[in-house]
Design a protein around this nucleic acid. Structure first.
Lengths: 344, 344
DNA sequence: CCTTTCGCTTGAAACGTCACATCGGATGGT
DNA sequence: ACCATCCGATGTGACGTTTCAAGCGAAAGG
């Protein structure tokens, strides 16, 4: 409980205070069993008195590797990614690691900057939902020797780990659910198509539609500029502007934010959900269940996604026999009130 | 572009490859102007070829301090804290720092564990929304010499920095707004009272009530066990269970999650919002504006809160003349549809 | 031709920790 | 009384970077 002198005390100072050598202090820290009880207690007392805290940088330098993982998420405004982050953190905690959480916000240069910083930190692994899985700085970073795990995007190639959810299947089950509910015309709300997740979910929807021989025109694609609540609201307006004959009685949104925006517009415009418009979202974020009309959504195992990604990165970092793995999870439909009734 | 040999190349290897001394490589990195153009180019070429990446741990060890800030948030499930985190990250980016984002989840021992780890990392500063501002491990950590800034909680004492929003004022303006709207009976929904924010907001509400000489019983306190959507829903049920004479026509919720839960219950039960029940939330998270009935809420300058906290921590870490500062922001009411009409 | 100056490069030391080889002294067996 | 054994403590070197005083060669000035 001594006052600070400006600089944090080192093992050397603890050793001096306890009247032992520096090596002994290190032993107390790392292999307490080889130290006699009396000296150990003396050293521990000195550590407490001086307020000694291990210097992690020095340990890292010595060990050659840090005790941290990193997650670079794609959109900090979407709770889905925070749930993935929570899964990562839980796995990291088990392994006694710290986590750097970064947000590229969809910007490729911000992503590159984050990667660069993380490489300098010598993090054990980088978990990344990439802006563009083909961007050169990804390959460049991987070449530097830090494990990179793609999150929520299947690796195109076999030379890196990835965890993802089968988005094509997700698109299928969403549309199948609406068909079971008796809907004849369905809108797919989502874009831009440069986003792989959007492409795949739309593809799944179209596959089912084609397999059942439905008229192509009855699966309407309402493109959006982003996956946000505001865009969902705007899509609602466009939907309402359609002539009644052509207007779909159900919408499948590429994610829950769009779905919430669409729902908000419907409620505001007096459109009954699900009576006049059934809505299916995607991701099953907590706010989907909490919406005024609880939202049917396609659930992704978000935490599991994060935990698995962390596990893979750690394996790649520590296991010399590591083999790259492309984990693929299955989505599941969670039916709620927003598709609870067929149209009257 | 040489293949990896298992270990990342160091300045020494770059120096050897470029045929210069290690000190020169360091100069290229840190003071390029003192190096002649030809050698600098040679060194830079060698760095590119070997894929050299600075080792941040070594820099830190040498410098005695890290280039990172940390934020320990109270509830990862509440978007409010992620918005604060975004503000912190933006300030950190300006200062070229990394950010560790941690989540105590309201657990005092998780908080302590995070603090311990962060002290070991020698982060420049720790921004913290504490579980309990009086917990001993906070003082203990501060004694270790790492700046600690309280976020969203005013420091009780003058011996540390803090950033907060005036919650008493926030409670006042929420209730004033409802009174202006003509409401006679109001429920305050929120708890537990161990949470300082809840206490202050309730106090503000009561102050206004008393100042205007309203009957105490007309400001009903509906306690909740937590600040979550589920608790908001439950509160809605209790509200609905009250006899009509005593039932308040308006609710002021201690945060937006409660408000959203309450709104969901109302919509599900066919209670018109705001006609039969007006709702005011707190925090103005993005989902408040995105709710089916857009939520009136008390806005806190979330990003600004984070940015200021980061600035204070950094000042404390680097400026020897630093004086502790208790920044206090003013909340503002954002009126939306959930209080749009007075009761009929 | 010698000295001064200047521009550039060099080499060594230090940051804090950990592992490993070494060393000292006490104990016990012969 | 002497040697082997063993437990516990010690000292040193290395991790990769930065800094700074010192060195060195060439150009400029006398």
């Amino acid at each position: 409980m001594t006052a600070r002198n400006g600089r944090a005390p080192s093992v050397k100072e603890v050793a001096a205070a306890a009247g032992v050598s520096l090596g002994t202090v290190s032993n107390v820290l790392n292999r307490p069993s080889v130290v006699s009880t009396s000296t150990r207690e003396r050293v521990e007392r000195a550590m407490a008195e001086l307020g000694f805290v291990r210097n992690e940088s020095a340990r890292q330098l010595r060990a050659g590797t840090s005790r941290a993982l990193a997650y670079v998420m794609l959109d900090g405004g979407n709770p889905f990614f925070h749930d993935v982050a929570a899964g990562i953190e839980s796995a990291a905690e088990d392994a006694d690691l710290s986590v750097f959480v970064c947000n590229s916000g969809g910007g490729i240069e911000r992503e590159a900057k984050h990667l660069d910083r993380l490489l300098q930190q010598r993090v054990q692994g980088i978990l990344l939902t990439p802006v563009d899985p083909g961007a050169p700085h990804l390959a460049e970073a991987a070449r530097r020797g830090t494990p990179i795990v793609l999150v929520d995007r299947a690796g195109d190639t076999r030379d890196q780990c990835s965890v993802a959810v089968d988005d094509v299947l997700g698109g299928r089950i969403a549309v199948e659910h609406l068909l079971e509910r008796g809907h004849q015309r369905v809108a797919f709300v989502g874009g831009p198509e440069s986003v792989g997740q959007v492409r795949d979910r739309l593809r799944g929807a179209r596959e089912v539609w084609a397999e059942l021989g439905r008229p192509t025109d009855d699966l309407l694609h309402l493109p959006t500029g982003a996956l946000t609540v505001a865009e969902g609201r705007a899509a609602g307006e466009r939907l309402a502007g359609l002539p009644a004959r052509r207007r779909p009685g159900a919408a499948f949104c590429a994610n829950d934010l769009l779905a919430l925006g669409l729902l908000q517009h419907a409620v505001g415009a007096g459109v009954h959900v699900p009576g006049e418009l059934a809505i299916v979202g995607y991701d099953d974020i907590d706010f989907a269940a909490a919406a005024a009309v609880p939202l049917t959504s396609v659930r992704q195992p978000r935490q599991e996604l994060g935990r698995t990604a962390a596990r893979l990165a750690l394996d790649e970092a520590t296991n010399p026999q590591h083999r790259h793995e492309q984990a693929m999870f299955a989505p599941a439909l969670v039916a709620r009130a927003s598709t609870g009734l067929t149209r009257s």
